[in-house]
């Protein structure tokens, strides 16, 4: 398949803002046009080929190599295509994204999929803070799509999210699902403190014990039927979600009563 390959020659000295690395733009551009695309190195306007070797043209399939730790806004607001990154990547990966897929073989910075609407992001390493979260002052965070992080994540995962699924394979830090309004967060390795703080609606599932806020109340244990639907969906993403009664059950908590909200937190209790 026709592919565009970008290789970062060396790590930029200061932050490189490269929202132009997007399948929506590259699909219509010649190699020369891609090379000439404007990126911001700090306050200065530069060309992509000041930093990257560019191979290929007119494709919505982009492969990037190198340590992009300081490269931000990759795949911003993209609606289609594929971006694969071999190496670490900086903040705002796939923020405001409306479609397509992003895969990172490495770690990602903060705001992965911030306020995204649709599409899929898979981080094989760790993610930073505010995965799928709302930017400061916005009412809604992630509004759809899927984010899977195999490693750990920072604070405020899914802050104010409305719809969509976030899976954290490792441990998340504080304030998972802060002010969440809907959607689902799956925590395979548990989380630190204040999970579900101020949530209004939505579901947080944890496969490990959680230290909950005092404003959550236990309301029974069960094996919700919607979980086997979810389980099948997640299986396709390589995530195992237990749901069979023989394996255990979920303790259900509702809250946050401080709001008061109707969110639920399900904590897996394996059968002994």
């Amino acid at each position: 398949m026709n592919k565009i390959k970008l290789t970062l020659r060396e790590k930029p000295v200061v932050v490189l803002e490269a929202e132009v690395i997007s399948p929506d733009l590259f699909v219509e551009q010649s190699n020369e046009e891609i090379r000439a695309s404007v990126v911001y190195h700090g306050k200065r306007q530069k060309r992509i080929d000041d930093f990257f070797d560019v191979e290929g043209e007119r494709s919505d399939c982009i492969e990037i190599h190198g340590d992009l730790n300081r490269v931000r806004h990759v795949g911003r607001a993209m609606t289609r295509g594929e971006v694969t990154i071999h190496g670490d990547v900086g903040m705002h990966l796939g923020a405001l994204m409306k479609g397509g897929t992003i895969e990172v073989h490495g770690n990602a910075g903060d705001w992965v999929g911030g306020e995204m609407k649709k599409g899929k992001i898979h981080i094989h390493g760790d993610a930073g803070q505010q995965v799928g979260a709302a930017y400061r002052g916005s009412i809604l965070g992630m509004q759809g799509g899927t984010i899977v992080v195999d490693g750990n994540a920072g604070i405020e995962v899914g802050m104010r999210m409305r719809r969509g699924i976030i899976v954290i394979g490792g441990t998340a830090r504080d304030f998972v699902g802060l002010q969440m309004k809907g959607g689902t967060i799956l925590l395979c390795g548990g989380a630190e403190i204040r999970t579900g703080a101020w949530m209004q609606r939505g579901t947080i599932i944890s496969l490990k014990e959680l230290a909950l806020m005092p404003t959550f109340a236990e309301s029974g244990a069960y094996n919700p039927t919607f979980l086997n639907v979810y389980s099948q969906h997640l299986q396709a993403l390589g995530v195992q979600l237990p749901y069979a009664e023989a394996d255990g059950r979920y303790r259900r908590y509702s809250g946050d009563r401080g709001v008061p909200g109707k969110g639920e937190i399900l904590i897996w209790e394996p059968a002994v």
Partner: peptide
């Protein structure tokens, strides 16, 4: 957060 719940008469 507990206080927010209590002023609204939510049981804690």
């Amino acid at each position: 957060t507990v206080l927010r719940a209590m002023i609204k008469d939510q049981p804690i």
